[in-house]
Design a protein around this nucleic acid. Structure first.
Lengths: 209, 209
DNA sequence: CAATACCCTGATCGTATGATTAGGTACCGG
DNA sequence: CCGGTACCTAATCATACGATCAGGGTATTG
C-alpha cells in the first residue's frame, strides 16, 4: 500500500538540483528579463549543463512558470500566515501590519516585482498566466480590505485601485532598484534598518502617524 | 563665413527617419528590454530596413543611448520649465506641483520608468550611463527640496532617499503596468481623469489633504 | 555635366540561442 | 547478477541575432 509519497521515488533524488536550477532561473529572469536570460547562463549558475533544464522542465517557458510560481507561493504563504495570525485584530491595524509584511517580503525577494514589471507592461502569454494565476487573487483581496477602510473613513478617500498601485509602487521600488539606490545615495536597501525605515515611511504616509 | 548651422546640410534630410527610428526604439526597448528588443523589429516598426539603424547610429547600444537620452531630455525640460514658472512660490507648494508634473509626465511617457526599472536592477554599463548622465542630477535636485521641507516640518519626518523612492514608485507604477491595470481593474490609466485622480492621491498622501 | 556626398537596401557574415538526440553512469528491484 | 529506470552530459541542429559590405539612387555642388 502506498503512503503519501506516490510516484515520486528518486534514489539520488533530483530535488536539490531542481531547486538550484529554479533559484538560478529566478535570479537571472528577474535581472535580465525572460528574453535576456539565456538557458546556458542559468545552467552555469546552477552548476549543471544546459540540456538538463529541458530534461527537468520541458522548455524555457515552463521553467519560467515554475520559478515564478514558486516565488508567488512564498508571497501568498507569507501574507496569509500573517493574516491568520491577526484574526480578531481590527481591520485597520491588521491591514497596516500586512502592508508591512508585504514590504519586508519585497525587500527580501526583489525578484518578485522585477518580474512583474517586466511582464505586465505588455499583453502577452506570460502576463496572461501571471495575472490569472497569481496577481488577480492578491489584487482582489487587497482591494477589498482597502475599500472597507476607505468606506469607514479609516483611510483617505482614494479609490482602492489607486491605493493598490501606490502600495505596490512605493513599497518595493527602493529594493527593486537596489543597486541604483546604493550607488545614488549610499543607502544600502538590504540593511535591516533601512528596510524597517522604509516600511515605517510608507505606513506613516498611508495610515497616519 | 559659416552661420550657426555648421556641418549639417542634408538635402532630403534624414531627420524624420531618425526620429521614427528613435520612437520605435524607445517603444520596443521599454516593452521588451534591451536584449529582448531586436534591431529588425525596431526597423520594421519604423518602416525601414535593419542595416539603416547601424548607418544612423553605430550600434544597438548607441541607438539605445540616443533614444533614452531624448526621453530624459524631455523629462528634464518639462520639470525645469515647471520649476521656472513657479519661481517665487513657496517651496512646499512648488514641490507639490512639480511632483504632479512628474506624475503627469510618467503617465504620458511610461517608457521612462520601464527603462529605468529594467536597467537599474543590476550594475552594468547601461546603468552606469543612465545614473551618471541623467538620474543623479534629478535625484540630487529632488532630494534637496525634500530635505528642506522635512527640516522645516512641512513634510513628515522621512529621510529624503526614502521619499525619493516612494514618489518614483507610487507615481509611475500604475502607468508602467498600464496593461495589467486595465485588465485587473477595468480602470484605464491613459484616461485623463484617472491620471488626475492618481496625482491627487499621491499628493494627498505626501503633502496632506 | 561630371563629381561628390548623403540616404538607403539586399545579401551575407560569424556567433549565440533554445531545443533535440544519443549515450553513459549509478542505483534499485528482481 | 541482471535489467530497468532515473539523472545527467557531450555533441549537434535549425534558427535568429547584431553587424558589415558592396552597391544603387538622388540631389546638390563646382
Amino acid at each position: 500500500m502506498e503512503a503519501a509519497a506516490p510516484a515520486r521515488a528518486a534514489r539520488p533524488s533530483a530535488d536539490p538540483t531542481r531547486e538550484r536550477i529554479l533559484a538560478a532561473a529566478l535570479d537571472l529572469f528577474s535581472e535580465r528579463s525572460f528574453e535576456g536570460a539565456t538557458t546556458r547562463e542559468i545552467a552555469a549558475r546552477a552548476g549543471v549543463t544546459q540540456p538538463l533544464l529541458n530534461y527537468h522542465f520541458q522548455s524555457k517557458d515552463a521553467l519560467w512558470r515554475a520559478a515564478v510560481g514558486m516565488l508567488f507561493a512564498e508571497l501568498t504563504d507569507a501574507l496569509s500566515a500573517r493574516a491568520d495570525g491577526l484574526r480578531g485584530v481590527d481591520e485597520l491595524t491588521s491591514t497596516r501590519l500586512i502592508v508591512r509584511e508585504f514590504i519586508f517580503f519585497s525587500a527580501h525577494h526583489p525578484q518578485l516585482h522585477r518580474i512583474i514589471t517586466q511582464e505586465c507592461k505588455v499583453d502577452g502569454p506570460r502576463m496572461d498566466w501571471l495575472v490569472e494565476h497569481h496577481i488577480r487573487p492578491l489584487y482582489a483581496w487587497t482591494v477589498e480590505r482597502f475599500a472597507h477602510l476607505v468606506e469607514r473613513g479609516e483611510l483617505p478617500a482614494i479609490a482602492p485601485t489607486h491605493l493598490y498601485y501606490i502600495v505596490t509602487g512605493a513599497g518595493p521600488t527602493m529594493f527593486v532598484l537596489g543597486p541604483e539606490c546604493r550607488r545614488l545615495s549610499g543607502v544600502d536597501p538590504s540593511d535591516p534598518n533601512v528596510i524597517e525605515a522604509h516600511a515605517d515611511a510608507v505606513c506613516m504616509l498611508l495610515f497616519g502617524r
